[in-house]
């Protein structure tokens, strides 16, 4: 509570107290510029993280409860194998739907993998059944029955793929989050260095203030408020520019996945300038008190 009161007191500002520290000139502008650039990059890292999360959810959802039964044609013949497969599937509890793909659908499915259409014409296409499974479906039971009654059949569970996709998307998401964290970390470092430079530049001012009885909080306040506002201003500009570019990208097909979906995601981007301001506040306060406590 005391820390919050102190933070609010520092941010509230006092024009006369602020005027005690002379303007820092280029240092201040460069701090805002660096913060803006980092916020701009953070927007894209956060957008990538959200896009990866959406993709993982979409792909996992799409593949959930789905599987494929592939039956390579043997000497028994297509019709006999199809009838046997249909019987097994219809008798298996938990299979809610089993749809055999026709030749055209099978070719369409395989053509990306085979490439040359003439090859597809030349080979005996396997039977493909698209299956829908109830949540209580027992895949091990079906596998066991197929091994006994239709041993040439290959059963593909899509959940195995969806798990990999989800893991990959999760890794992309963490990578993006790491990038976001690095951007915020660099923001804190940049502000700390700028604040220390300003404190060193105004060492004589600080010394004079100490001589006349100024408390550390009074001396720190002008620096902290100044750098917090610079961090906030820079981050607001960078975030606004980043969002504008994202909005422009959403009109094109290639990178439209990056654009935020829904009010909640747009609001999430408002955290960037807020967090940058908090980091600027904390970094400057720490730097200021670090310098001040080294003085008598």
């Amino acid at each position: 509570m005391k820390a919050l009161a102190s933070a609010l007191s520092l941010l509230r500002g006092d024009p006369k107290a602020d005027a005690v520290v002379p303007p820092s000139g280029a240092t201040g502008h460069l701090t805002a510029l660096a913060t803006a650039a980092l916020a701009f990059l953070t927007v894209f890292a956060l957008a990538a993280s959200l896009a990866a999360d959406r993709a993982a959810a979409r792909w996992s959802g799409a593949l959930q409860g789905q599987s494929t039964l592939e039956v390579p044609i043997t000497a028994e013949g297509r019709e006999a194998q199809a009838a046997r497969a249909e019987r097994i599937l219809s008798q298996t509890p938990g299979i809610t739907r089993a749809e055999q793909l026709d030749a055209e659908q099978t070719r369409a499915l395989l053509s990306p993998w085979i490439g040359d259409p003439s090859v597809l014409e030349a080979i005996d296409l396997p039977l493909i059944f698209a299956l829908r499974e109830a949540p209580d479906f027992d895949p091990a039971g079906l596998t066991q029955r197929l091994r006994g009654e239709l041993p040439e059949a290959i059963y593909h569970r899509h959940e195995a793929w969806s798990g990999r996709i989800a893991r990959t998307a999760g890794q992309v998401q963490w990578l993006a989050f790491t990038f976001v964290a690095i951007c915020f970390g660099v923001t804190a470092v940049v502000v700390t260095l700028a604040a220390r430079a300003a404190l060193a530049m105004h060492a004589r001012v600080i010394e004079t203030l100490r001589v006349i009885g100024a408390r550390d909080t009074y001396v720190a306040r002008a620096f902290v408020r100044r750098f917090t506002l610079r961090g906030l201003t820079g981050a607001l500009i960078g975030t606004a520019l980043g969002l504008a570019v994202l909005a422009a990208l959403s009109n094109g097909p290639e990178l439209s996945a990056l654009s935020p979906h829904g009010f909640g995601e747009w609001v999430l981007f408002a955290i960037i300038p807020l967090l940058s301001a908090i980091l600027s506040f904390a970094a400057t306060r720490r730097a200021a008190f670090h310098v001040l406590t080294r003085l008598a």
Partner: peptide, 21 residues
């Protein structure tokens, strides 16, 4: 440190090289 600053406010100091803002 605040307590020491408060004590300093009870003193006036004039340096040889007067420091001003």
């Amino acid at each position: 440190r605040d307590g020491i600053a408060t004590l300093r406010q009870r003193m006036g100091m004039v340096h040889q090289n007067c420091q001003f803002l």
